[in-house]
Design a binder for these strands. Structure first.
Length: 301
DNA sequence: GATAGAT
DNA sequence: ATCTATCAACGCGCA
DNA sequence: TGCGCG
């Protein structure tokens, strides 16, 4: 079966294959979801390399990550060649509606996107703080998010945006002007996390090794490195019930909110009824130059 | 999921 | 014509 | 150099 998406014909294979067997969600359901959400997604994915997390046999089957665009991908799918440690890799970008459709047909349930864009690949235009609980205690995640917001906005004069991951935690995203490279940005992110963790060492940790976290909330600043990715806004997660990574208003971060509050099945109603929580996302970019100086002083006290 | 090679 | 095997990531920290 | 990690 072929779908016409804009000016492109996208072939759809195995449209009735159940990708989420319990929820009864088929491949064509996933494709229709991404078609409906495309206009809300593409502003955040345009010109960014994508890592595909593919599940050709559904969430119960074998999955794999794919970075290199396959030879058989169509010419109209935009790609970019980016340097890697040993050579070069040609990666897909989600720049149009048909791209989302094509990737969904490939069994890519969850696209992950770079923090930088193709025209300045070594300079991220955002920071991501990944708050990942070891258990499912979302209250700890909410408190941590508020601690981050206080430091980032009140002390460091940056703007923050919040998103459920659709899995267990939250992402805090800080839009920045592209005048610092990944090493500089990661160093800054590391400092931020260490200040937060030092303030509440029983609640938070920046330990990479799982066995050293001892039940504490992991503050992951390592996302802010070259060629690292974070889950795409409104991406479907390959978990029971098809939860969706969802941008939120800060004021929503309380009470019964949790990381899987929104799913493929109920997100559309939210989109229809709510304003865009990230309305001012791209207007909010700030330079890290001054925040870096302030952070340096805080770390040396 | 798509393809090449084997039956 | 059908089946089967094969392939599809990588950067960083640290032991 | 190789493993753990996301």
């Amino acid at each position: 079966m072929d779908l016409k998406v804009g000016r492109y014909i996208v072939g759809v294979t195995n449209q009735n294959k159940l990708l989420f067997p319990k929820a009864g969600i088929s491949k064509i359901d996933l494709i229709e979801y991404y078609l409906a959400m495309a206009e809300h997604i593409i502003p955040y994915t345009k010109d960014r390399p994508v890592t595909m997390h593919r599940f050709p046999d559904g969430i119960g089957g074998k999955s794999f990550y794919q970075k290199e665009a396959s030879d058989y991908f169509p010419d109209w799918l935009d790609t970019v060649k980016v340097p890697k440690e040993d050579g070069e890799i040609e990666m897909v970008m989600i720049n149009k509606k048909a791209s989302l459709t094509y990737l969904a047909n490939q069994g890519c349930i969850t696209p992950h996107i770079w923090l930088s864009k193709k025209d300045k690949i070594d300079y991220p235009d955002k920071l991501v703080f990944d708050l990942d609980p070891s258990d499912n205690d979302f209250n700890v995640v909410i408190q941590a998010a508020k601690d981050f917001r206080k430091l980032l906005e009140d002390e460091l004069d940056l703007k923050t945006f919040i998103m459920t991951t659709g899995s267990k935690g939250l992402h805090i995203i800080v839009p920045i002007i592209r005048n610092k490279n990944f090493d500089e940005v990661r160093e800054f992110a590391s400092g931020v996390c260490k200040i937060i963790a030092n303030d509440k060492p029983d609640d938070y940790t920046t330990e990479i090794r799982k066995d050293k976290r001892k039940g504490r909330l992991f503050l992951d600043y390592m996302r802010n490195s070259y060629a690292q990715t974070s889950v795409m806004p409104y991406a479907v997660r390959a978990l029971e019930g098809a939860p969706v990574a969802t941008p939120l208003f800060w004021k929503e971060l309380q009470g019964k909110m949790n990381a899987q509050r929104y799913t493929l099945s109920n997100i559309q109603k939210r989109i229809e009824n709510e304003e865009n929580p990230w309305e001012n996302y791209y207007k909010s970019r700030k330079s890290l130059s001054k925040p870096m100086q302030i952070l340096e002083k805080m770390l040396n006290r």
